[in-house]
Design a protein around this nucleic acid. Structure first.
Lengths: 200, 200
DNA sequence: GCCGGATCGTACCGATCAGTTCGATCTATT
DNA sequence: AATAGATCGAACTGATCGGTACGATCCGGC
């Protein structure tokens, strides 16, 4: 967990190590649930180093959230890519991936949505909004390839299912939501296919 | 907004007035976004009074969230009751009510879900879980009356749509989610009706 | 008209927080 | 070996936080 100390002094590597370790701690404890001092001791890093790399605690938070958004989107894209060419299978793969996430012991809901609920700094809210936008693009792409009548609409509805399943998994039950949301998503997809768009 | 001062000294009334004013402020600023001192000045109440009624800040937070959950559930139940006997109309009414909520200027997402994302006190999380449970009971009731094949499953899927629409409305777009989630919900309801359960 | 409880306003306490500073130490480069 | 930059560890600052204490004030019941 702590930043490797004996290794080559490489600012970029130090920064990356801080980012990775801070991501887990801020997710587990909440953005305001852990102070910079404890954060540094748990990271094995001095305050001066942290502040030289990130300027302020908010700067660290923003960097953590940006990196997390990148990782999440790449992870979902990988799940889609591994599901073959069939759009329905790709959609199912998204929810199967979510279900695996829900069952991780450290699962605490969507870090981006949680952060926006805690922190009122507009930049944090902007990062969350952008994250949802990237997620929406991904889902809308599936809807388009599936020949949905209104892929934009279906994409937004699928996004609601994704976020709703995550909320329910975080606060009620971590076992069911993935599969149940997947079934709902496939139902919506099938219904949207039955009424093809004007140019299909 | 401030607690009426010239009126009869009535502890219960004072408590209720604090509760109502604190609900709005804690929702707007976040549970940790406003301190007890500012809270008291904005409420027009002394710290001693607040602490005599609620013991600790966490006590106030819990009371606020409990009261909010009660109000929200009663408000949704009223929307359902006003929609007549047809389950599909009742379901549509739920999302229409949500849409009105999303368009309120003060809308900031579900206060209960936000609170659970901020505060790590287990009691707060318990209140949120109970709130989602009450919401689920309500939606499952509609699913049962509609003759859904698996009303429990449909209820949970509808809950995901409700929470997902709220998240999307809070972070991306306050205009669309209500109607779009309603359309998705009605599609799911229709699909669940086409495959009636074994004893229907 | 007096008394008891509710309330107010303010001052105060200890803890914690984000952020700064500085001398000591470590490492890579030359 | 010497230099320069990265890092450490620890002390420090000023602000804010939740919570407490206390005298003054206000009100309803007797």
């Amino acid at each position: 967990m702590p930043v490797p100390k004996g290794s080559t002094i490489d600012p970029a590597r130090t920064r990356a190590a801080i980012l990775q370790a801070a991501t887990a701690l801020l997710y587990e404890r909440g953005l305001d649930g852990i102070g910079v001092a404890e954060l540094c001791t748990r990271l094995g890093v001095s305050k001066e180093t942290l502040y030289r790399h990130f300027g302020t605690k908010d700067g660290l938070v923003e960097a953590v959230l940006e990196a997390r958004s990148d990782r999440v989107i790449a992870w979902v894209e990988a799940a889609v890519a591994a599901a073959g060419d069939e759009p329905a299978a790709q959609l199912a793969a998204v929810f199967d991936a979510l279900q695996h996430w829900y069952e991780e012991p450290a699962f605490r809901g969507c870090a981006l949505v949680n952060a926006a609920a805690q922190h009122h700094v507009p930049q944090v809210r902007a990062i969350t909004a952008r994250h949802l936008g990237r997620h929406l693009t991904l889902l809308t792409g599936i809807a388009e390839r599936a020949g949905a009548a209104e892929p934009g609409l279906l994409g937004r509805q699928l996004l609601m299912l994704v976020e709703g399943a995550t909320v329910v998994a975080a606060h009620r039950d971590t076992r069911g939501p993935g599969a149940e949301a997947r079934a709902a998503a496939l139902t919506l997809l099938a219904a949207a296919r039955e009424r093809p768009g004007p140019d299909t």
